[in-house]
Amino acid sequence: MTPGDTAAPPLLELRGINKSFGPVHVLRDVDFTVRAGEVTALVGDNGAGKSTLVKCIGGIYSTDNGETHIDGQKVNIHGPRDAAHNGIEIVYQDLALCDNLDIVQNMFLGREKRSGLILDEPAMEELAAKTLAGLSVRTVKSVRQLVSSLSGGQRQTVAIAKAVLWNSRLVILDEPTAALGVAQTAQVLELVRRLADNGLAVVLISHNMNDVFAVSDRIAALYLGRMAAQVRATDVTHAQVVELITAGRSGSLGLQPEEAL
């Protein structure tokens, strides 16, 4: 930990989060810290609880117990609207875009700007174009293109831009590069890095270690619903992270043997 890290409270801090679905205990006493200006990679095997943890942060699932702190203040998040209100935006794996709407319409979906009862299309279009320009996105021809005409990378870009549009402070990306080719992956990772450099807190869920090491500052590894370790990306090797994911520990890092069982 550098002194700069401890000076301000982290943007998001989860303490002792538990979540069960019936008899299945999915998250056990999970602690998770996310800082502004950093990319925190959230890694773990299938079923480790990554998606559940993210949905708890986003207010889609309620937690059984545990505390959520934002800027050191305890908050209660009871739904997606609460999360959005606290500046938390999630970009889902399956994108959650409407193919039959254009880029502007998708970016403002559910939060349309209006003048009176009528949609304020010019204002939305202007803001959408500005946001895309601010993220140095040059791959889309027109913001009035239907999403159905976009490539996978362009869709991911729109989904991320949609999250950023709302002066969000924490953007969570659920496997943003899973379905993309090499060039498009590079494009999206560049965008992810730019978000953090712009001062946002970014959580990146990924299975791809190359992606994780390419952009993240910190790595948090979940193992069977427990937080095995949260470390600086520069302090660990590729192999250590893989061990954390598959065994829950790597040498002195991670869960103690009796804990892991």
Binding site: A96, N100, Q105, L109, G110, R111, E112, R114
Partner: peptide, 24 residues
């Protein structure tokens, strides 16, 4: 075509899950 309600009709028809996640 010109109200949020109409936009949400299109959104639900295009992708229910996206609409739900957008808070519709």
């Amino acid at each position: 075509r010109r109200t949020p309600f109409g936009r949400h009709i299109y959104a639900v028809g295009g992708n229910v899950e996206a609409a739900r996640r957008a808070g519709i």
